[in-house]
Write a protein that binds this DNA or RNA. Sequence first.
DNA 1: GCGACAG
DNA 2: ATCTTGTCGC
Length: 322
Amino acid sequence: MARKAAGRPQEETLSLWKREQALLKTLVVDRDTEAWQRDLAFSGLQRVGGVDVSFVKGDSVSACASLVVLSYPELEVMYEDCRMVSLTAPYVSGFLAFREVPFLVDAVQQLREKEPRLMPQVLFVDGNGVLHHRGFGVACHLGVLTDLPCIGVAKKLLQVDGLENNALHKEKIRLLKGGGDSFPLMGGSGTVLGMALKSHDHSTKPLYVSVGHKMSLEAAVRLTHGCCKFRIPEPVRQADIRSRDYIRRTLGVQGAPALRPERSKKAQRPKACPQGASEEPAVSCCVINCSVKSTWQRTEPTCPSPCEGAILEVHPPALAVI
DNA sequence: GCGACAG
DNA sequence: ATCTTGTCGC
C-alpha cells in the first residue's frame, strides 16, 4: 500500500508557491517580541515546543506529524501529539513548507482548542527560517501561520546566497571551541542569515540556526543552546523520537516483523502525556486555512478547475488575498 | 558525467 | 526523509 509521491510540480505551481512565500514573508517579524526573550535567564519562559514529520519507510506519502511541548528549563515532556497524515505535495528544496506545514499548523490548532494552557511560547522547527532561497523557510512559514515565535534549526547548511560548505566554512567549524560557540553566516548582500552553532561540547557538526518568527537571531541561538542536552535541541529531538515510535507502534504489528530481527536497545518511555483518547480521525480537518493544499490541488492536472483569488487566513486577523 | 539537494 | 552494522569512546 505504499503510495508514491507526486513528481515535481509544474512550473506554474512553483510560481504560485513563490508568490505565496513572498506574500507571507512580509509578515515575518525578525526581532524579539516577548519579554522573556530579552531576559538573560529567559525568566518567564516555561514551555518550549518542537515539531517534526517522520516517514513510513518506503512510502513518501504516509507520515507521522508530531508536536511536543517541554517544560523549560527542565526540558521534560508535558504534551505529545502524533498523528498519521498523507503528504500530497512532493518535496522540493526551497518549498519544504508546502509539503509539511499544513499538518503542523493543524497540530498547533488542536492544542490551541483543547489544551490552550499548554501552548508553547516558542517552537523549534526542523529546517531553516530566513536562511532560505527566498528568505522564507519552513520555520518562518509555520511562525506566520500560527503567530508563534519560531526558531529554524537545520542539520545541514543550505548553500544559498553565496553560502558554501567549503574549506573555509569547515575551518570555522573546526575553530568552534565549546558548546554555545557560534559564527555568523553572512549572505552575499552582507546580511547575517543565521548562525552555525556548536550545540554542545562534544559535537563535531554544528547546527544552523536562523530566525523563524518573532525572535531575534541572538535570542534564538542562545535559547537553542539552552535546549540542547544532545546535538539536536530537545524539543525537536523528542518530536522526532516520538513520531518514529508512533509509526513503529502503528505499523509494527501488521507490518513485517520478520524483516526486523529485533536489535533494539531502547530502555523505556515515560508515557505520561495526553496521547489522545483517540476518537480522532487519522487526519484532522483543517482549522486554519493555510491554502497550501488548495494551491497544490488547484494547480495540478488532477484538478480540472483552477480558481484564483483564494484567501489566506493567518492567525490573528491578518488576511491576505492571492 | 558531476554537483546540489532544508526534510 | 529513508536505506543500513558495527564500532569507538565515555
